[in-house]
Amino acid sequence: MSELWAASALSVRIAAVATLVTVLFGVPLAWAMARRKFPGRGILEAIILMPVVLPPTVVGYALLMLFGANGWIGRYLGGYSIAFRLEGAVLAAVVVALPMLYLPAKAGFAAVERELEDVATLMGANRWQTFWHVSVPLARRGLLSGIVLAFARALGEFGATVMVFGWQPGRVTLPISVYAQFEQGDLNTALPTVLVMAIAALGLVLVYNALASQRD
C-alpha cells in the first residue's frame, strides 16, 4: 500500500511540474501560432504535434540521444545526464503533453474575435495587456481543457519515461509500477495500481467533458 502511495505521489509530482512547464511554453506558443504568420510555421506545428503519433519509445530514444551522458548535447554538459533523474521524467512528460495543451489552446485563441483584441490595442493596451486581459480570458475554455488533457497525458506517460527514468526500485511512477509488476509476473498485485489510474483517468476525462460542454 505504501508503495502505491509513493508511486502515486511521484506520478502526481512529475505530472504537475510537467503541466506547469507545458503551460509556460505551450500557451504563448499556441497564441503565436493562432495569431502570427511566419515562415516555417507549418513545420514548427508539425514538430509540436509529432509526439501524438510517434511511439513514446521514439521520444525516449530521441531524448537520450540528445541529453544522455553521451548525447549530442549531454556530452557537453560535463557528465550531466537526464537519465534516472526527475528532470528527465518531467522532460519526457512535457514533450508528450504539449500537443494536448497546444491544440485546444490554439483553437481557443483562434476563436477569439480579432476585433476585441484590436479594440483593446486602440484603447491603449500594450501587446502583453491585450494577451493577458483579453485573449486569455476569452480563450479560457480551450486553455483549461488543454491543461486538464496535458496533466492527464503526463500522468499516464510510460514509454518515454521508462526509457529516460528507467526502473528504479522504490522510485517508480504508477505506469512504470504496472510494468514492473508485470515483468515480475505479479499481474494480481498490479490491480490496485491499475484501479487508481483508471479512476484518475475517468475523473480527468469527466472534468474535461464538463469544461468542453460548458456554455459561455
Binding site: 544522455g68 551522458a69 553521451n70 545526464s81 537519465a83 534516472f84
Partner: peptide, 14 residues
C-alpha cells in the same frame, strides 16, 4: 529488464 540492458546502461555512461 535483462543483463544486456544493464550492460547498455554502463556502456552509455548513464
Amino acid at each position: 529488464a535483462n543483463v544486456r540492458q544493464v550492460l547498455a546502461y554502463v556502456e552509455r555512461g548513464e
